[in-house]
């Protein structure tokens, strides 16, 4: 399956979902005019990628999937889509995938750190918090 790359715009984040390194990065600012239109294909891609992984027998044990959130700002509508993505990741963890989640935040931005903690608690997944 091909990697998914979407360039950032003034109101939507950059997506680099790399199937070679299994690093999935969402970065930048997220307040798209139509959040559903932006996030639905992204979410579908993740679900489809898991389908292709599960078809390969050894994938679950051998590979580590790294989800990296490095957002400068996201609005509350985007927050709910991020939650959808995390709930899918949670399912993958429950299925036995090795997954790391990195939550990057500006060291001046307590709200971004709080948001990460809140997501982590709500979905019951461990995040690695990395300040920049």
């Amino acid at each position: 399956m091909d990697s998914l790359i979407i360039e950032a715009t003034e109101d939507s984040p950059k997506i680099i979902f790399d199937t070679v390194s299994n690093r999935f990065i969402i970065s930048g600012e997220s307040r798209p005019e139509n959040a559903g239109k932006f996030y639905t294909p992204v979410i579908n891609w993740i679900v489809n990628y898991e389908d292709t992984l599960s078809a390969k027998k050894e994938a679950k044990e051998d590979s580590v999937l790294i989800f990296i959130f490095k957002l400068d700002y996201f609005n509350s509508t985007s927050a709910k889509y991020i939650m959808d993505i995390l709930l899918i990741i949670k399912k993958f963890v429950d299925q036995g995938y090795n997954i790391n989640i990195e939550w990057h935040f500006d060291k001046r931005d307590d709200d971004m750190l709080d948001a990460g903690n809140e997501f982590s608690d709500t979905v019951d997944l461990k995040f690695d918090f990395i300040e920049y």
């Binding site: 005019e33 139509n34 959040a35 559903g36 239109k37 639905t40 609005n75 509350s76 509508t77 927050a79 709910k80 939650m83 809140e118 709500t122």
Partner: peptide, 25 residues
């Protein structure tokens, strides 16, 4: 507020471009 925010976050989406979280946020 945080409790309500979390409930709303996990509730079923009623509109694809509004999470009903704005004022809470």
């Amino acid at each position: 507020l945080k409790k309500l925010y979390r409930e709303q976050m996990l509730s079923k989406r009623t509109h694809e471009n509004s999470a009903g979280l704005g004022i809470l946020d």
